[in-house]
Measured scan of single mutants.
Amino acid sequence: LQLFIKTLTGKTFTVEMEPSDTIENLKAKIQDKEGIPPDQQRLIFAGKQLEDGRTLSDYNIQKESTLHLVL
């Protein structure tokens, strides 16, 4: 599923993930694309901070959802 990642600077980029992927996987993918170390990434969806060990489906993140990346 394609997700939109929006940064505080207003930049938006996309990543391609599976619902079974963990937040950790997502942070690694963001590191590949943007060079931001996972330990500096905080991801927010629907007002909640996402925890590394959980999956996208745990948070009911669907295709074309927008996640906010806070550094």
Rank of each mutant, 00 (worst) to 15 (best):
P37W: 14
K63E: 13
G47N: 07
V15I: 11
L26V: 14
Q62C: 03
L50E: 00
T9R: 07
K63V: 10
Q2L: 06
P19H: 14
Q62T: 11
Q49I: 07
I23W: 01
L71E: 14
D32A: 12
Q2A: 09
Q40S: 10
T12M: 06
Q41A: 09
T14G: 06
E51D: 12
D52E: 15
L26R: 00
F4N: 06
V70L: 15
F4T: 15
D21Y: 03
P37H: 13
L56F: 07
A28R: 09
M17Q: 03
M17R: 01
D32H: 08
Q31Y: 13
T7V: 12
R42C: 04
Q41F: 11
F13C: 02
E24K: 06
Q2F: 13
K33I: 07
L56I: 11
F13D: 01
F13R: 01
L69N: 01
Y59G: 01
D52L: 08
D52C: 03
V15R: 00
I30M: 02
A28N: 15
L71Y: 06
E51L: 09
D52K: 04
R42M: 12
L69I: 08
T22V: 08
P38A: 14
I30C: 02
K33A: 11
I61K: 02
G53N: 15
Q62A: 12
K27V: 02
D58I: 04
P38T: 13
H68S: 14
T7K: 06
Q49M: 09
K33N: 12
G35W: 04
E64F: 05
D58L: 03
R54C: 04
Q41W: 06
L69T: 01
T14W: 12
E18S: 09
Q49S: 06
I5G: 00
A46P: 01
L1I: 15
D39G: 10
A46R: 06
L1E: 04
I61G: 02
N60K: 09
T14F: 08
R42P: 01
E18A: 11
N60T: 04
L1A: 04
K29I: 10
S57I: 10
D52A: 08
I61Q: 02
Y59W: 02
E64K: 06
G10F: 07
I44F: 10
A28T: 11
S20D: 15
Q31W: 09
L67Y: 05
L8R: 11
G53D: 11
E24H: 05
L69H: 01
I44G: 05
L8P: 05
I30Q: 00
F45M: 06
D58G: 06
Q41E: 01
S57C: 03
T22Q: 06
V70H: 14
R42Y: 15
I36Q: 05
Q2M: 05
K29L: 05
F13M: 15
H68N: 07
G47F: 04
V15Y: 03
K11H: 14
L50D: 00
F4A: 07
I5F: 03
K11L: 13
D58N: 07
D32I: 05
K63G: 11
I44V: 09
S20W: 05
Q62N: 09
Q31P: 01
M17P: 02
Q40W: 09
A28E: 07
K48D: 10
T66M: 11
Q2S: 14
K11E: 09
I5C: 01
E34A: 10
P19Q: 15
A28L: 14
K33R: 11
K11C: 04
G53V: 08
F4W: 07
G47Q: 06
P38N: 13
Q31V: 06
H68I: 11
T14Y: 08
M17S: 06
K29A: 11
T12R: 06
L56D: 00
T9A: 10
I23P: 02
M17W: 09
Q31S: 09
Y59R: 01
R42W: 15
A46C: 04
G10Q: 06
K63Q: 15
Q2C: 04
A46Y: 15
N60A: 13
P19T: 10
I44P: 00
L3G: 00
P38R: 15
N25I: 09
G35E: 06
F13W: 09
Q31R: 07
L3E: 00
I44W: 05
Q62Y: 08
Q31N: 10
L67A: 04
T7R: 06
G47R: 04
Q49F: 15
E16P: 09
